Amino acid sequence: MSERFVRPTAVDAVFNSVVGFLTHIGLPLAGSRVLAVRGRSSGEWRTTPVNPLRVEGILYLVAPRGQTQWVRNLRVAGGGELRVRGRVTSFRAVEVADVNKAPILRAYLKAWSWEVGRFFDGVDATSPNEKIAEIAPGFPVFRIDLL
């Protein structure tokens, strides 16, 4: 497991707040959702906007910044909620092994590179499978099983 983490800038924090607010009131940006997961120490609900991705009928969450707090909390909690405008969908999360991430990361980059491509250090949706597989350990991916 890679310890890669990209700290949010002040601009990122403002952007995430705006996206989170818009999603909360029912105006999700390109399908974004608010992820709610219990804090691993506090047990309190923690929220952040995320970009769920469906690949071959399966829903995934990708952490473009790496080992974020939501990733660490989700590993401990084992699940959480996806929220949009008062609708709450509970889920169980299963972390995807590094060897299985390349097609998911490629699809994620196709869908969301306009927003998160800068976190992928020059790798994009057209990069060779080998290059995507090489960076995969730095990008946690979770399969979302809706309850």
Rank of each mutant, 00 (worst) to 15 (best):
P103C: 12
A93N: 06
A97H: 10
I104V: 15
R106C: 15
G80S: 01
V94S: 07
G80Y: 00
E81Y: 01
L82K: 02
F91G: 04
A77L: 02
V88Y: 10
L82G: 01
R92T: 04
R87F: 12
T89G: 08
S90T: 04
R87D: 09
D98T: 14
A93L: 03
V84S: 09
G78C: 10
G78V: 10
E95P: 04
V99D: 13
R75I: 02
V88L: 12
A97L: 12
D98N: 14
Y108W: 14
A93W: 04
V76G: 11
R87G: 00
L109E: 14
G79D: 02
L109W: 04
A97M: 08
I104H: 06
R87S: 06
A77H: 04
G79M: 10
A107G: 03
V96R: 12
V96E: 13
I104C: 08
N100L: 07
R92S: 09
A93D: 04
S90F: 05
R106S: 13
R92I: 05
Y108P: 08
A93F: 02
A102H: 12
N100M: 00
S90K: 07
V99W: 02
G79F: 03
R87Y: 06
G86R: 07
V84P: 00
T89Q: 14
I104D: 11
Y108C: 14
P103E: 14
G78N: 12
T89W: 13
A77V: 01
A97S: 09
V99S: 11
K110G: 12
R92W: 06
N100A: 11
F91V: 02
G86Q: 03
D98W: 04
K110R: 15
K110C: 14
G79Y: 03
V88P: 07
R106E: 12
S90A: 11
R106P: 15
N100E: 15
A77P: 05
K110I: 10
S90V: 06
T89H: 08
V88S: 13
I104R: 10
A107Y: 08
V76L: 13
R83S: 00
S90Q: 06
E81M: 02
L105F: 07
G80P: 03
R83K: 11
V99N: 10
A97K: 09
P103W: 12
E95F: 10
R75P: 04
A107C: 06
R106D: 13
A102C: 14
L109Q: 15
G79L: 01
G79R: 08
R83P: 01
R85W: 05
V84C: 09
V76R: 15
K101Q: 09
A77E: 05
T89K: 08
L109S: 15
K101V: 07
A77S: 03
T89I: 10
V94M: 05
N100C: 01
Y108S: 13
T89E: 15
Y108N: 14
F91T: 03
Y108I: 10
V84K: 10
E81D: 00
A93M: 03
R75A: 03
I104G: 11
L82D: 03
L82V: 01
G78E: 14
V96T: 11
V99E: 13
Y108V: 12
